[in-house]
């Protein structure tokens, strides 16, 4: 199965190359990323796993992990240098089948406090754009509040910034802000971040 999987991955890399030929990145140039990299999410949406998939397929990052719900202690299990937090709550599963957003925000606050203490580079990513934007007070917006103002670098799918929210956050925090047209373009950002 591993051989098969490798072949599959190779195929997708070719496809990615074709798609990325028309990639569109704008705003601030990508900042330098560090390793080991920990990829996680805010809100349990699918974005972090999508990012993991893209990071994996670029082949640019040798040492990275993915954790769905890291607690502060998890940030110390390895000498991580960069924490990539993909923003966005899950839309599937309301009530008993969904997440409790209050608990999730508490976890995120604790995680960010620990990351700051450990002086990790925090990269906030809104990979799915306006799909994971919502009304004030909604789960998506609260996740953004919990992470984005503390990020050292922000990558946002352009249609997620139609109201200028990320411009305002970046202006206040001074974090560079890079825009991508499509989620697929994130591969190019990762390649640039981790170019040797």
């Amino acid at each position: 199965m591993n051989v098969a999987r490798t072949c599959g991955v190779a195929g997708v890399v070719v496809l990615l190359a074709v798609v990325s030929a028309s990639a569109a990145i704008s705003g601030a140039p990508p900042v330098k990323g560090q390793q080991p990299l920990l990829i996680t999410n805010a809100g349990q949406g699918p974005g972090a796993k999508m990012s993991r998939l893209l990071v994996q397929r670029t082949g640019a990052v040798a040492d990275f992990d993915y954790l769905a719900e890291p607690q502060p202690a998890d940030l110390k299990t390895k000498p991580y240098k960069t924490l990539m937090v993909v923003l966005g709550s899950t839309a599937k599963g309301l009530g008993a089948s969904g997440i409790t957003i209050d608990q999730e925000i508490d976890r995120l606050n604790a995680m960010i406090a620990e990351a700051k203490k450990l002086k990790l580079q925090i990269v906030g990513v809104l990979l799915e754009g306006k799909t994971r934007r919502g009304k004030p007070g909604g789960a998506d917006e609260r996740c953004i509040d919990a992470i984005a103002p503390f990020a050292d670098y922000l990558v946002v799918k352009k249609d997620g910034n139609e109201d200028g929210r990320f411009d305002a956050i970046a202006k206040k925090s001074g974090a560079p802000l890079t825009f991508i047209d499509d989620a697929m373009d994130f591969s190019e950002v990762v390649k640039a971040m981790y170019a040797k």
Partner: peptide, 9 residues
């Protein structure tokens, strides 16, 4: 879009 099936629904 894509969503992962919630385990408790």
């Amino acid at each position: 879009k894509t969503e992962t099936s919630p385990k408790s629904l």
